[in-house]
Structures are given as C-alpha cells and as structure tokens.
Design a protein around this nucleic acid. Structure first.
Lengths: 226, 226
DNA sequence: CCGTGCTCTCAGCGGGTTCTAAGGTTCAGT
DNA sequence: ACTGAACCTTAGAACCCGCTGAGAGCACGG
C-alpha cells in the first residue's frame, strides 16, 4: 500500500528531461516524461502526478497554456515552471496563470530538488486544509470527513481513497489509476479490494440514503460527482 | 529526552539568515531557515517551532501575512518580527496582527538574542498561561492539569506530551512528529514508549470514565479531540 | 542503603483493519 | 430474453497495530 510520489517532466529539450528524470528517479520518485505540451496534458490525465515540472517555452502548446488547461479542468497538481533567464514577465505570468513556483534556467539539479521538496511538502502537509465537494468535507488535519452535520471516521485506506477522489472531482478515475495510487499495486493481480472499499466509503457517506457521490462508470472506473 | 528549542528564521536576505542561524545554533537552539513567506509557513507546519523570527518585508507573502495565517490556523508560536528602521506603522501593525515583539533593523545579534530569550522565557513560563481544550485545562506554570474539578499531577514527560497535544488540538500528530518533539528521537529505534505514555495520560485524564480526549488514529498517530 | 518515583522495555493479547472469496445483481450486446 | 462480463454485497480469515500490565534500570533523597 501507499504509493511513490509521481512527477511529470514536460520539456522539449531531451537533455533537460534526461537530467531531471535521472536525478528525480535516483531520489526515489516515479518519473514520467513528455516532450510536448499536448503529450504533457495526456500524461497528466493518465498518471495523475503529484507534481509537474513544466518548461514554459515549447513549440505548440506552451507551459502557460498547459497550466491554464490543467487548472481549468480543476486539477490542483503542484506545478513548477521552468523559465528562461530574465524573462521576468514570463515568471509573473506563470504564477498568475496558476503555477506554484518557478525556476530560472539554467539551474543546478540541487536547486530543482529543493523546489520540488518544498512544493511536495506543502502539498503533503497542508495545514488547516479542508477539501470540499458538494455537501461533503474532508478534513485533512483531523483525518475525518463530514457530511450533513455528521462526523465520519475513516480508516487509513478509506481516507487515502477518498482523498484521491476529492483531489480529482468530476473526473473518472480508472481502476488501474486508483489501485496504483492507493495500493501501489503492480495490478495484474485480480482482486476486488477497490470495490469493497468503495462500498465502505459509500456506506459511511450515505448512512441515511443521502445522494450518492461516488458513482460507478461501468467499464471505466469511478467518479466523484453529484 | 526533552527536545531542543526550535526556532524558525524567515528572511529573504541570506546574510541575515546566516548570521541569525549561526548565532542561535551556537546558543544551542535547533534552527530552521526559510527564504520566503510561503516556505516559512511550510516549515512552521513541518517543524512546529517554538519561536519564529520573521522579516516583515519580503516579496510574495510578507511577514504580516505569515503572522495572520499562522494565527488564524490557531498556531500560538512566539513571533519576533524584524522591521525596517522607523517603519513605525509596520511595528504597530505587526503587533496588532499577532506578533509578540519586534526588532528594528539593523540590529546586533546580542539584541536579537535578548529578545529571543525574553520571548522564550515568557512562553516557557508565561505567568498564568492556562491552555484549555474541552473540559481539560493545562496549567503551564504549575505543570499540572485539571479536569472535572480534579487536579492532575503530571510527570515531566507526561506534561511535555500533553502540552504538544494541547498546542495542536484536533490535528492528527504522527508518531514521528511526537517522538521528535517529546523525545528528540532519531527514530529508527523501535519502541513503544509513546503508547505507554499515552496510556499514562489517558489513565490520569479519565480516572472515572470521562470521555476520551486523546484518540488513536490507527496507522497514523493520535489526535486530541472530543 | 533502602525506598520512592519516573522512564522505558518487553511479551502477550485483543480487536480493528485489510483483504479474499463466493455468490448475487445489474448491465450491454446479441 | 439469454449470456457473459462487470460490479456489488456479505461474511469471515489473517494480519498487524496498538494496548496492557509487569517489571527492570536509574536517579534522587531520606
């Protein structure tokens, strides 16, 4: 159980991708690469990374546009933007567009690593964070959920599963993705743990027939939606 | 046992950070640095310092905003604010916002040290400070607790553990965090001291079956809550 | 030198949590 | 309507985490 942190690296320069990939992989992260903005968006959808290292200057869909699209799709993944030296307006634009931090090229790997750690820490231990969706609240500090006035206690696995849904509302999460994120499975293994835990959550979230929030999408996975 | 006092230094000027860090480290404090307001908030969350030395003028989230956020998150850490010369309105604003003291730049390290000592003394033995949660009181002066009329004597370790809980109510504290703060452990070492002391506290806090305040969160840690 | 109080270790137990497995139900396609 | 696949439901086995009680080690004071 429990998964390795995923980082998506989007840059059209293969040299940078390689350096960053190797370094981060060495640090124990699971790294996914993309060479274009489009590919980046795909991979983000596919792998639900915890952080995206995103070059701002790319042919086609550039980093700003990628950020914009991710944000407007409700994705709150941490974004570390790579900008060219002295392109001050780019940096500002990047932060305004929705990036969380930026790093000026050229950079040492250590610099990058420091930012990555900072961003992930912020994400991992956000104090006072309460995620909300419809009439459901998830208190990350207290590790408990609330709905219609009632407080709902969650086990570790339930919490971890609900957290994934709350971070990607209205988005269909495939079985494989969920398994990887909550159980770190090498899949293949036939198991219905996921179904069982979805049921546990549903039971706890709808003790008195409240409207369902976690819906089944047959042949695809599950969605959190009204 | 017993942990070194932690101080977080937040300033965008590396020179000031270095001077302050070295000086305080020499005095035996454990020092954590942050270069921006955001990083400061992160580090505060992560390390739960006893005192924050906080520059008021910083790009991005400034010292005032950091103070505001810490306070509104219920954090009562001591805050020593660094202000530019003669920015009287900043000082006033700082104190109003929730800082405990201020120091005008430029300052000698001895001046800083004096303020730090004063604040920590005040915090360590704040006359009449009584922390409250639900029907439980913790008298920091007397190092004793009170519940339902009864006075509860605490040993040093019990007090230190309960103090940590009282300072972070409704927040799940992981084993690692607690161990670091109360025992200054390098962890690794398997031990169930924590469990034992939680039990001691529970026994003392619920001698007649009063509702439990320190709850176990399986696989995560413990929380102080109703 | 013994008693007292505090800290910490240890081993066994209990119960919550996780997961499996088997049978039931729903759904899409023919 | 029939069939197989996908998904749901339920029960319970296995596991592991945290709880418990006893006691050893240690410091301190009488």
């Amino acid at each position: 159980m429990s998964e390795a942190t995923r980082i998506l690296v989007v840059d059209d320069d293969p040299k940078i991708r390689t350096v960053v990939r190797r370094g981060l992989a060495y640090e124990g992260y699971r790294v996914v690469e993309a060479a274009t903005g489009e590919e980046g968006l795909e991979k983000a959808r596919e792998h639900l990374p915890d952080l995206v290292v995103l070059d701002i200057m790319m042919p086609g869909i550039d980093g700003l546009e990628v950020t914009r699209r991710l944000r407007s799709a409700g994705d709150e993944v941490a974004i570390l933007m790579l900008t060219a030296r002295d392109e001050v307006k780019d940096r500002v634009l990047g932060l305004e567009t929705g990036a969380d931090d930026y790093l000026v090229k050229p950079f040492s790997f250590e610099e990058l690593l420091a930012r990555v750690h900072a961003l992930l820490r912020r994400r991992a231990a956000p104090s006072g964070e309460v995620l909300r969706f419809a009439d459901l609240e998830l208190d990350v500090d207290a590790r408990e959920a609330r709905r219609s006035g009632r407080t709902i206690e969650l086990t570790t696995t339930e919490f971890s599963l609900l957290l994934l849904f709350m971070r990607h509302p209205r988005k269909v999460l495939t079985r494989a993705i969920i398994m990887e994120h909550v159980w770190a499975y090498d899949f293949e293994g036939e198991s219905n743990v996921l179904e069982v835990y979805v049921r546990y959550l549903r039971t706890k979230l709808e003790p008195n027939g409240e409207p369902r929030l976690i819906h089944t999408v047959r042949g695809a996975g599950y969605v959190l939606k009204e």
